[in-house]
Amino acid sequence: MKISTREVEYVAHLARLEITEGEKEKFTSQLNDILLYIDKLNELETQGVEPMSHAIGVTNAFREDKVIDSIGTEQSLINAPDARGEFFRVPKVID
């Protein structure tokens, strides 16, 4: 196995996902298959090949530093699950 149930639990926790015991098993097996497939790619000779992070050849896509009107506080808060006055409201977080 390339990946353990414990690692699946860890990744799920990092993503704040709650998964059932059954799902844990299913995902462990699926993720294992994916990683095995990635292993196949490792068989390729990549010496001297530059790492690539993007599939398209575009570079240097820039924007000029010009202000465009924002959508405003009211519009910004309109989809919020909870808001108060001009603020989003969330359960208390202290780090």
Partner: peptide
């Protein structure tokens, strides 16, 4: 010290009405 944010055209001005310098990108 730019006029706009790094990935959208919202103003970077300090002290505006809360959540007024926002757009779908920075939200």
């Amino acid at each position: 010290l730019t006029d706009t944010k790094i990935f959208c055209s919202c103003s970077t001005k300090f002290g505006g009405t809360p959540n007024s310098h926002t757009c779908p990108v920075c939200l």
